[in-house]
Design a protein around this nucleic acid. Structure first.
Lengths: 204, 204
DNA sequence: TATTTTTGATTGACTGATCAATCAATAAAA
DNA sequence: TTTTATTGATTGATCAGTCAATCAAAAATA
């Protein structure tokens, strides 16, 4: 049924199919055939639009990272205060769709791929920086910059760690518990620093 | 040079070679040829001793997890108090050899593999449980059990998270900084819960 | 001790399967 | 007619896994 303007439709279908197949399979060692089948087209068409398997996979990372970014932006807009914005960033990280086993499996596979593909690595580095900087920007409004950096580093690590540990599916932690742990961390580290009481502390 | 008793020698050489090749390659999509070459034997011999590539990889995970376990046990023995034991567990997690880029890349690859191989997953689950329980046992001596569980969960996540983030090699964190972040986390959560911890609040 | 037999170690050459990538051909819009 | 979408068939490369053959040490035997 060749109709003009199929390209964007097919590209999206293939990228979505790739994510699903990778998530199910839990690995990037998926075939173009599987992806194409899942997208309801022939393997040859996948090559036609993406040129190579690698390009399709890179595009898949790119698109999904972009979507995650959009979620964060939306959530940040809805939050008013810096403290609310911090919570928003955390909440999005543990969003139901992000926390689904197949999604986690897929991201894990991409992390592994990043060791080999410079382009995949670049995208993931951007994600890691963004997470850290979203936390940092709002923490800076609540405590001295020096402390903000430490806390952002720790919180980002905790978020990624909870995520990774989830991938093993042993003693899975609920979304709420994951959010609570991260919030607790920030609250406790912030508590002694946020007040003006800290202000009178000059550098040691 | 056929001499009797080569089997254990070859097995060890192949397992070590596998870890090295996987670490360099940053992925489990390595060939038996590469591994065998690295070990200085023919691919056929690798098959002779391990039966299949999958078995060799599983054995590789097992052996390296065992080594990590031995390090932890040794470190725990050397530590006296529960608080010292906590520090020991953290220290071993970030040991230089564990924190080397190739080692991290290899573990990441195994995590991804665990999504597909039930046996690999089992080993990693054991590791995750052990980390958590080593932390938990010693935390229990320092605070109420309920809190101990929360803190153990958070600390384990932070350790794994720092580890994973290291794999992207963007803004790498030093071993000392990683240890400090984790120690800080535990100290701060412990502070309001234990008299002893409050006493030994010495540094920031 | 000298000779033969057995056994473990090792490999080169091969096979079968899998898969990414290509391409020529077809069908339907424009 | 030209362009775009689409596929079946095919190719070439890569690899895991197999196997029969070799070689040398060890054990058994004379």
């Amino acid at each position: 049924m060749p109709k003009v303007g199929m390209e964007p439709v097919r590209r999206k279908a293939l990228v979505d199919a790739a994510m699903r197949v990778i998530g199910d399979h839990g690995s990037l060692t998926v075939t173009m055939s599987e992806i194409a089948k899942q997208a309801g087209v022939s393997p040859a068409l996948a090559h036609h639009y993406f040129g190579s398997k690698e390009q399709l996979l890179i595009e898949t990372v790119r698109v999904h990272l972009q979507r995650l970014r959009d979620s964060v932006i939306t959530a940040l807009r809805a939050a008013k205060t810096p403290r609310e914005k911090l919570s928003a960033v955390i909440r999005v990280s543990f969003q139901a769709d992000q926390f689904a086993p197949e999604t986690i499996a897929a991201w894990l596979a991409f992390y592994a791929e990043a060791q080999r593909s410079e382009e995949t690595r670049r995208f993931l580095v951007i994600y890691a920086r963004r997470l850290r900087s979203n936390l940092l920007a709002n923490l800076k409004a609540l405590c001295p910059e020096e402390d903000a950096e430490r806390i952002a580093e720790g919180a980002a690590a905790m978020i990624d760690g909870l995520y990774i540990r989830q991938s093993l599916r042993s003693a899975p932690i609920s979304i709420e518990a994951s959010i609570a742990l991260t919030e607790d961390y920030i609250n406790l580290l912030l508590a002694p620093l946020s007040r003006e009481a800290a202000v009178q502390r000059t550098e040691t």
